[in-house]
Structures are given as C-alpha cells and as structure tokens.
C-alpha cells in the first residue's frame, strides 16, 4: 500500500508527524525551502551586501545549506564563499572534503580549505593519539571555531553560516539546562555568538528550525552527493544521550524539538538580561584573537598538546 501526499494525492516520500502530513517529493521540497527562507526572514539573517562564509564540511547539513544559500545569494546579490576545515582525520575528512569540492564546483561557489596542521600545528589524529579520544570533540570544537572566525575575517566576510539544524539546537538547549549552565545559552540562537567586536564574525544558522531527518531526506530527494559517514571520533557522551532522549520523546510526542527551541526563544531576552557581562572580550596575548581570558582556549589547549 502506497502512502499518498496529503496535498496532491501523489506518492508520499515523508511523513511529518508533527503536522500529521504526508508529502510527495514536490510538496516536501517546497515546504523545506519555504521554511528555510522563512527562518532567514524571521531572524533577519541575510541582507543585501552581505559577504557570507559558508562553513562546509561536506556532510548533509552544510551541503544542503550551501545549495539553499546559493539560491538566496543569487537572488539577493550576496557574495558567498564556502570554507572547509581539514582536521586531518584519516579515512574520513578526505572523503567528505572531496564531496564538498564537488558541490562547490557544481554550484560555482568559491571554495577555501584550511587545515588544522597548518593553523594549529596538529591533526586530530595526532591529538587523539596524545589525548583521550573521548575528549576529541572538545579540542575539535575549539580549534574549528577559532579557525573559522579567523579565516572569515581575513577573507573580509561579515557573516559565517553554520549548518546547525533543529535537532542540534534542541540538544544544545537541553544540555545547558541539564548541566545548570543556562548562561551558555545567552549567545545561542539563529544569530549566534554575537559579540560586538570587529574581530568577531557574526554567525547565522538558517537551518535551525529544520529537523535533522528532513535535511537528510531533502539531500536524497535532490540527488545531492553526500557521504553519510560519521566522524570516527564522534563520541560526545552527554550530547549522545540527550540526542537519544529527545528522539524518543519526539517519537511519542511529535513536535517536542520545536517546542524546546521555541521555549528557549521565549526566554532568550531574560537570559541575556540575567547573565549579561560587564566586560567584553579581550585579545589573546598569544595569538591576538578574541578571548574571554588573557590567553584564549585555543592557545591553552595547544600548550597542553605541546607539553
């Protein structure tokens, strides 16, 4: 028995449990793209004259985001540059970067690749050999964000698009509540990490209202060449547990992930008011990049690795 599209009666490709709709390829693609554009409008993420870096790993989220941003960029005459970071993970990153390069060629988007080896002095494989592999994500997150901010500024970009989806957002909100670290949510959102400083490149997250599973299905129905392979070091235990928990709840109570994110949005202003800091960031005395302390986390971690 074939499930029919709720809109046209055609063959459905997806069930959206939270809206009790089954959609065919055409209506799903329309719905997906409309929601992407609506997020861009709702949070005022893009305006004419923007020069946007697109953080592109070659995975499903960033590749889908690149495709959709390219459309908007052409319509609004906005410049976009794809930026990839090669962490130096054997049998993994090479493959995804090849997919990223292919996507950029197809879309005729400029593509820049930066490596951990050159910018940090170590590959992730080397870091994991030195340190506990379960801490890999902590090192990787710090280094990636440092590189992306620095190179985006050097490329004279005023915004950096990150492919975080609704699942990522709901997990982040819940993780910080569970850890009693609500202050970490102050700079979280569709326009994230906002620090008013010329050294900081604003982050935008146009996929933040879109469920992860729908991103995957969109990439498949649009025949995008994506490697669905997981980072061999992926193992952030706490996020993994929160992810499992949210997926279970979502199965039983569809729409929960949206509600978690919307709840956060409704208290965001109050969080900012409650946790606003009087001091702004300073410049790291080692590398000159923005830091909350005299020496930034990136430089401290490198010192640890060299020890």
């Amino acid at each position: 028995m074939v499930v029919s599209c709720s809109k046209c009666g055609g063959e459905a490709v997806i069930n959206l449990a939270y809206s009790r709709a089954n959609l065919c390829r055409k209506h799903f693609v329309d719905s997906f793209e409309k929601r992407f554009k609506r997020t861009v409008r709702e949070f005022r993420l893009i305006k004419k004259g923007d020069r946007i870096g697109v953080a592109l790993s070659g995975g499903k989220d960033s590749t889908v985001m690149l495709h959709l941003l390219k459309k908007i960029a052409d319509e609004m005459r906005v410049r976009i540059v794809a930026i990839s970071v090669d962490e130096g993970i054997k049998n993994y990153r090479g493959r995804t970067l090849r997919a990223a390069s292919k996507a950029c060629k197809k879309l005729e988007v400029e593509h820049k690749i930066f490596s951990y080896k050159k910018e940090i002095g170590f590959t992730m494989d080397e870091i994991v050999r030195k340190k506990n592999r379960f801490k890999a994500c902590s090192y990787c997150g710090v280094f990636r964000r440092w590189i992306l901010n620095k190179v985006s500024r050097e490329l004279k970009l005023n915004k950096l698009a990150i492919g975080h989806n609704l699942d990522d957002a709901a997990q982040t909100v819940l993780m910080n509540i569970l850890r009693n670290e609500p202050m970490r949510l102050v700079r979280f959102g569709a326009r994230g990490g906002i620090v008013e400083d010329e050294m900081f490149v604003d982050r935008i997250k146009p996929m933040i209202r879109i469920p992860e599973r729908e991103v995957a299905i969109y990439s498949v129905v649009k025949d995008m060449e994506i490697n669905f392979i997981e980072c061999p070091y992926a193992g952030e235990a706490f996020r993994g547990r929160v992810r499992e928990f949210l997926n279970k709840i979502e199965e039983e109570f569809p729409g929960t992930k949206f509600k978690v994110f919307n709840s956060f949005l409704s208290i965001k202003d109050a969080l900012e008011e409650r946790f606003k800091s009087n001091g702004g960031p300073v410049k790291c005395r080692e590398c000159g990049e923005l830091s909350s302390d005299e020496v930034c986390v990136r430089c401290r971690l490198i010192k640890e690795l060299k020890a």
Binding site: M1, V3, E11, I14, N22, E212, N247, K248
Partner: peptide, 20 residues
C-alpha cells in the same frame, strides 16, 4: 531504529513510515 534517525527506501524509492 528510531524513526527520527531513519531514512527508508522501498524498491529504491524513499517512503514514509506508514508505507506497508
């Protein structure tokens, strides 16, 4: 396998969970 992380093809085509 949670439906939240699953993508299913039947005879090469993506199908929703209600498909028999």
């Amino acid at each position: 396998v949670s439906r939240e992380v699953a993508l299913v093809k039947k005879n090469g085509k993506i199908v929703p969970e209600g498909e028999l």
